[in-house]
Design a protein around this nucleic acid. Structure first.
Lengths: 109, 109
DNA sequence: TCGCGGTACTCAGTGCTACCATGTAGCAGT
DNA sequence: ACTGCTACATGGTAGCACTGAGTACCGCGA
């Protein structure tokens, strides 16, 4: 993956995944697939799973094991109250940085 | 500084500084001050200087030492051809991620 | 029955970046 | 001398995404 992209995903990828989880609970493989559909084709599976471990440890999601028809049991993640709060904060931070960068883009070009 | 902000600045701060340098050449202390004016009040001086060392080593800027009226000589950074190319790439990457996140923000809320 | 492809998760190691704290140094005004 | 502003430098830390490899379970066709 391009270096810039990698660096820019730091901090934002977590928010993106949390945002996906507001729609509906999901499991790792599913989230990876959805990211790919949304254009993030180069995000490795390992990256997503590592991120899910982190947000679980931070207590932003509730986890439930659900048997799968095909393959190992799924770990289904559901956004909880703390996760929702974290996501709100993410949108605030994103808005802040995004506004300032857009300003630079307009005037700079 | 807030954790989220720190992480989200990774990758973007370099672009922000490069964008500032398109306006006019500048030196570290000046860039730090301008960042603060633009709302990035919590960015440490050390962070900026470290970033400037990096972009210099990557050959994105030309450097010139200019004596200062007050204090040590200034290291004035000027965006060169490679820096401009890197900035273009930054805007592409930014646009990509930004578009996708904005889409999530709209539909998610 | 054996391999293959798709599903689903795990983990150790690496590199990059922003942060913190501190240090150096020049100059002005008191 | 002391304080404060200007100006740059640096060593150590933490967090995050990436790489690459591995485990395991299932169904299907050769």
């Amino acid at each position: 993956m391009r270096r810039q992209m990698t660096e820019m995903l730091k901090g934002t990828l977590e928010g993106i995944v949390l945002a996906l989880l507001t729609r509906r609970p999901a499991y790792g493989y599913e989230i990876t697939a959805e990211l790919r559909e949304r254009g993030f084709t180069d995000i490795a599976e390992g990256t997503v799973y590592a991120l899910l471990v982190r947000i679980e440890q931070k207590g932003l999601v509730d986890v439930e094991k659900v048997p799968s028809e095909k393959g190992p049991p799924r770990k289904v993640f559901t956004l909880n109250t703390r996760g929702t709060a974290e996501l709100d904060e993410f949108w605030t931070t994103w808005g802040f940085i995004s506004d300032r960068i857009e300003e630079l883009r307009k005037r700079g070009h």
